[in-house]
């Protein structure tokens, strides 16, 4: 018990620092959010035009209502599971301050994790309720009945938390690329576009050719966004949900293991430039 308490006593200050950071930069966050949510609205208008043009009630099995729920919940999921510990690792390697972190008596990724959780606390509480409420009100108006399902919602939260951990460790791995590429702008763009597409954030994976969709469903990227969103929408049966959550856990363990391996080999290669 005392070990648990010591663990939290060590890392909670990092969360507090994260919260303070978020408060100082709140204007940045709000502007960033408005910029990002615009792309969700562009997609909304494009899909509306698609449904009007097709003259059919469904598009590859999705109704307009499904599409709107998919768009905004996948925007929310993408936002909540976004992790940029990668940049911090990269910057610290470039400016050499990683050396100071390596001699501290605490795990470097736990520091990042707790700092990021604190940093995101305020923004999450600001956007989570409005988006979920907005989506549900939209569904209520278009269907005339309450579609909100508390069981699916709770399972979505579980899936979301695992997705965040996968994303966190994936981005820790990616952050180590700074050992090899000294500039991260281009690689980050490539990574984010690819992950966005492979995770189903651009189009639902069921819209893709079935062979490709089957492969992507198994890859870790689907676990980042597609799985939680489909759970929220009630597109899976309970046995399917159990399988998807199991797959998510599997990828979480894999990412964790890979990040540990890279860390070990990267430490050996590290040459701090300047000081």
């Amino acid at each position: 018990m005392s070990r648990v308490r010591r663990f939290f006593r060590t890392y909670i200050p990092f969360s507090r620092a994260g919260i303070q950071e978020a408060v100082v930069y709140r204007a940045n966050f709000i502007c960033f959010l408005i910029g990002e949510i615009m792309s969700a609205f562009i997609m909304y208008f494009v899909w509306k035009a698609v449904f009007l043009s097709s003259g059919s009630e469904t598009f590859m099995g999705f109704t307009m209502e499904d599409m709107v729920v998919y768009l905004f919940i996948s925007f929310l999921t993408g936002y909540l599971t976004y992790s940029d510990g990668a940049f911090a690792v990269g910057e610290e390697i470039v400016d050499g301050s990683i050396a100071a972190r390596m001699i501290r008596p605490c795990s470097f990724e736990m520091c990042f994790l707790f700092q990021e959780l604190g940093n995101r606390l305020i923004s999450v509480s600001m956007i989570f309720v409005p988006i979920v409420a907005g989506v549900e009100i939209y569904r209520y108006i278009t269907c005339g009945e309450l579609r909100f399902n508390i069981v699916y919602f709770l399972l979505y939260i579980v899936s979301l938390l695992i997705a965040y951990m996968i994303s966190f460790y994936f981005n820790v791995c990616y952050g180590f690329m700074a050992f090899f590429f000294k500039n991260l702008w281009g690689t980050t763009l490539i990574k984010e576009t690819l992950v966005g597409f492979l995770s189903g954030a651009v189009v639902p994976l069921v819209f893709l050719p079935s062979g490709l969709a089957a492969v992507l469903n198994f890859l870790p990227f689907a676990s980042l966004s597609y799985t939680p969103v489909m759970i929220y929408m009630g597109m899976y049966t309970y046995p399917q949900i159990a399988m998807r959550l199991g797959l998510q856990l599997f990828w979480m363990v894999v990412m964790f293991g890979v990040s540990k391996l890279i860390w070990r080999s990267a430490v050996k290669r590290l040459a701090v430039q300047g000081g």
């Binding site: 590429f181 500039n183 281009g186 690689t187 576009t193």
Partner: peptide, 19 residues
């Protein structure tokens, strides 16, 4: 750096076109 930046932008456009 240059190559990665250009490839990144090319990718971003390609994904939109697939959509």
């Amino acid at each position: 750096d240059f190559l990665l930046g250009a490839v990144g932008l090319l990718f971003a456009q390609a994904i939109q076109l697939i959509f």
